[in-house]
Amino acid sequence: MSELSSALANLEEEKVARIIKQELGTGKDSMGVLTELRKGMDEVGQRYKKGEYFLSELIVSGEIFKDAMKVLEPTLKKDGGGPATKVVIGTVKGDIHNIGKDIVATLLKGVGFEVYDLGIDVPVKAFVDKVVETKATIVGMSGLLTPSFESMKETVDALKEAGLRNKVKVIIGGGVVTELVQRHTGADAFTDDAMEGVEIIKKWSAKSN
């Protein structure tokens, strides 16, 4: 692992910023820098899986990654890195809880997904429209209240009605989401763990590519 990847995995914020500045200053390709950052995020995920890291370390690494991207993004070529799997994500209608959704969105970006974050209290139609517009193959819906179950179900039903259900995988997440909720909504997977959600999406992406 490179020094930059290690610095990110070790949550060394200042070191990450310094190395990026150095590398870009010496003419290193920004796509190469991004690849190193993603390897760092992968390592964070590995440490989480081994129980060495907790959700808090996912949050901090995500914030370091976001800060790094602010520096890196203006220099990245639009078509750099090849096609990425597209994910539409949002907190469903009637629910404004954003923490879990925000963490997952950041982690997904960190490992290379193209994420369309629709925000909170997202109407059913907005999910469907964004899938049509982006041709995303994965939809992630979040909610922390029991009324969100119906919004999730309505969104899955709307994807069916739009003829998109067999083209997208749907994952639901949140503190109150269980297998019972997955069955009720017709989603393909559920989780109450941000990194587990990312892993499920990575597996889906690997199968489809």
Binding site: T146, F149, V176, V177, T178, L180, H184
Partner: peptide
């Protein structure tokens, strides 16, 4: 008793 069990179970 889980919220999902009370509302969907």
């Amino acid at each position: 008793v889980a919220p999902s069990l009370l509302s969907l179970g």
